[in-house]
Amino acid sequence: MSEQVTWVPDQVDEEIPSAARVYDYLLGGAHNFAADRVLAERFLQALPSARDVARLNRAFLRRAVVFMAEQGIRQFLDLGSGIPTVGNVHEIAHGIDPESNVVYVDYESVAVAHSELLLQGDEHATVIQANMLEPDRILGHPDTRRLLDLSRPVGLIMAGVFHFVSPESDPPGIVARYRDELSPGSFLALSHFTADISPDEMAGVVRVMSRSSDPIHPRTRAEITELFTGFDLVEPGIVGTALWRPDHPERAGLEPGAAQIYAGVGRKG
């Protein structure tokens, strides 16, 4: 029987697990359903370090936003932003400059509903319900145009989401469409599952996620590098999430799941 809770949008089918809610569960969140938790436990069986992988991806997001803000970025477009948890992009950016503008994008109804609640009264942040495979719709959306000035540099964020884009959707072409609309000096921060490190574990993850509404498509380092075409990678290039400008370099390589997801940040010249 489906759980009866008050925070569920009417159109949500609680029996179909989603990646956003599985990720929420792995991060210790409460906005997930029984079907999500069952899938998450299978995910953990396939990838025992999954909770650490989720935590490290979230930590990369924080460091990437801080880095971009330190380079002068004051407007951010976060694609596949997920269910709000502590340390959202606008919280990080506003900690550096309260005038920073943030547009979140997600197609998952629960993620959007909670983002709307979180952002009530915040004139510097909004959420759009849309699929990241629709760059024209997202970039042309009235809320995007209201908060983001595309004639000035933008921090484009694709943290832990682009591995849900199938090869048939032309991943490099999708990124290029966003890139071409961004002004020079903009940044792309991206993290992405790979099978380079633990192919057997990742094959298990692929099988598990095939039962959800969000199948996963891990990519090689070369394929992920291709997504940065037109961007100059900043040091240290594309590395495991724990190894991208870590707060504690001496411990970074010892983190469980440190390299299950590749991460990088590039600057458009």
Rank of each mutant, 00 (worst) to 15 (best):
T194R: 08
H31W: 13
L56W: 07
G266S: 02
Y25K: 01
H90K: 04
A189C: 04
G230C: 01
P215L: 04
D143L: 13
Q11I: 10
P215D: 03
R145I: 06
P17E: 00
E41G: 06
A35V: 12
E201C: 11
G204E: 09
L139M: 14
S186R: 07
V206H: 06
L119Q: 09
G237E: 03
I92K: 06
P249C: 01
V105T: 07
P172L: 00
P172A: 00
Q71L: 02
D97K: 11
S100W: 06
V38T: 14
G155H: 12
S191N: 12
A222S: 13
E226K: 10
I157K: 03
A30N: 13
R37L: 03
G87V: 11
L26V: 10
V89Q: 05
E108A: 15
D214V: 05
I174G: 00
L118C: 07
I128L: 04
E168D: 15
G253S: 11
A130N: 09
G80F: 10
Q120F: 09
V102Y: 04
V66T: 14
P199K: 08
P246H: 07
R37I: 05
A113T: 06
R179K: 06
P246K: 08
T126F: 06
I174C: 02
E15S: 15
G28A: 06
Q11Y: 01
S100C: 15
E99D: 14
S212L: 05
T85P: 09
D196V: 09
R221K: 14
D232H: 04
E14R: 15
F187P: 01
G95L: 09
A69I: 14
V66C: 00
P48N: 02
V154W: 05
Q71N: 07
V86L: 11
I238K: 03
V127Q: 06
L150I: 00
A93Q: 11
M68T: 03
P236L: 02
Q120D: 11
T241C: 14
A46Q: 08
S212T: 15
L188C: 00
A30G: 04
V5R: 15
L44W: 00
I216T: 14
G237F: 08
V65N: 05
A50P: 13
H248V: 15
Y23T: 08
F162K: 07
R146L: 08
R137Q: 11
V239C: 06
Y178K: 04
D52T: 12
Q4M: 06
Y104N: 12
V205N: 05
P48M: 03
E134K: 14
A64N: 07
H217P: 01
A50R: 10
F33C: 08
P98R: 13
M1F: 08
G253P: 14
S49C: 06
G140E: 01
T229N: 02
I238F: 00
S191I: 07
P171W: 05
E250I: 09
D36L: 13
I73Y: 05
E223P: 09
R37T: 10
F228N: 01
F193G: 13
R137T: 15
I16Q: 13
G140T: 02
